[in-house]
Simulated scan of single mutants.
Amino acid sequence: MKLVTYLKDGTEFVGAVTKCRQKIIPLKENGFNYSTMIELIEKITDEEKEKIKKLADSGEGEGRLFMKDVKILAPIPEPKQDIICLGINYMEHAVESVRYKKEAFDGTREFPVYFSKRVNRASGDGDAIPSHSDIIETLDYEAELAVIIGKDAKNVSKEKAFEYVFGYTVINDVTARELQTRHKQWYFGKGLDGFTPMGPVIVTADEIAAPPVLTIKSYVNGELRQNSKTDLLIHDIAYIINELSQGMTLKAGTIIATGTPAGVGMGFVPPKFLVHGDTVTCEIEGIGKITNTVE
């Protein structure tokens, strides 16, 4: 099923999207007392999942709304913790990254690059990307598949990793390249306000085969920039959950952004960074797309 957070009359609600993808079934009006998506992820039972899925599949339920009549927010507007991100997790992106940084690359990536992305509030489809032009000039985009952890994960084996996945969404890991390189770490350059467009929905894990093999694309002003498949991750989802859970507990609701493929702005010669007025669309097969304009 597809779950969404939306704004109606100034209040945030959680709903299920019908199969036609045009309507929302409000969960509270149908007996599911979840105030936020995080609360849903933490508390939902298998029986409740099945009931919500049946409502969404049938298109029935109380208080149905047209999606066009409400504001669709990021599915998790305010994550409880920073997002865990994978850097340089597609080989062709590794190549373009080191070319931009003028570094040597031996063609291998033995260990993952993990970093934390600060998110005060995630942006939804249609929200603006602030240019922060007073402090940066090299604004970039990165389409990524995000994994949502569904239950506390500690010492999880690769074989059981997908038992801990609640679902998936799309993230644009917006980046200020000069801050990223200047500080020799990525927290500041990745964590500015408005740098986490997310959504439009969370697709639950039961709807996507494990591991996901999905087309991932991005467009800038209609021009196709990124075009890859999520099974080309250097370090796949099972590896990531297994490795991280050996040393830390991945709490329910944890968001893991799995990395971006080649085709980001810094990868072009000369680079194609975002400027005021540019429109970026990030799209993943089976999940949907988010479109945001730089302001």
Rank of each mutant, 00 (worst) to 15 (best):
K151Q: 09
F162L: 08
T279W: 03
P211R: 10
E163R: 00
I149H: 10
A210L: 01
P270I: 07
V201Y: 05
K217Y: 04
P197M: 01
V213H: 12
D152L: 12
L192M: 15
R225S: 11
S245G: 11
V269D: 15
R225W: 05
I171A: 08
P270C: 09
G189C: 00
D236S: 03
V220M: 03
N242T: 08
H235F: 09
A209E: 15
E243Y: 14
T181S: 14
I171C: 12
D236W: 02
G199Y: 07
T175I: 08
V213I: 13
R225D: 00
F162C: 07
T258K: 00
F195A: 00
F162P: 03
K184W: 14
E159K: 14
I149T: 07
N227K: 01
D193M: 08
E163T: 07
I240V: 15
Y187V: 15
L250M: 09
V165D: 08
K251G: 01
T181M: 15
T230M: 00
I171L: 14
T175K: 05
A146M: 00
G267N: 02
V275A: 15
A209D: 07
T204S: 02
I234H: 10
G191Q: 04
V147S: 00
G263P: 11
G189M: 01
H276F: 15
S245M: 08
V213D: 15
Y168H: 04
N172S: 10
D231G: 10
K190V: 01
K229M: 12
L250D: 07
H235C: 12
V156H: 00
G150N: 02
Q180V: 11
E223M: 11
G267R: 06
A209Q: 13
M198H: 10
K184Q: 12
A252M: 05
G189E: 00
P212E: 08
K160R: 14
A176S: 15
G194D: 06
F268V: 04
G265M: 12
E243I: 12
L179A: 06
V170D: 05
K272W: 02
L214D: 11
V203H: 07
D206Y: 06
N221K: 01
G150C: 03
A257L: 01
K229S: 15
I240D: 01
L233A: 04
K158Y: 03
I171Y: 10
T181N: 14
F268A: 11
V220A: 12
Q226H: 01
T169W: 11
I216M: 05
I216E: 05
G194H: 04
K217D: 04
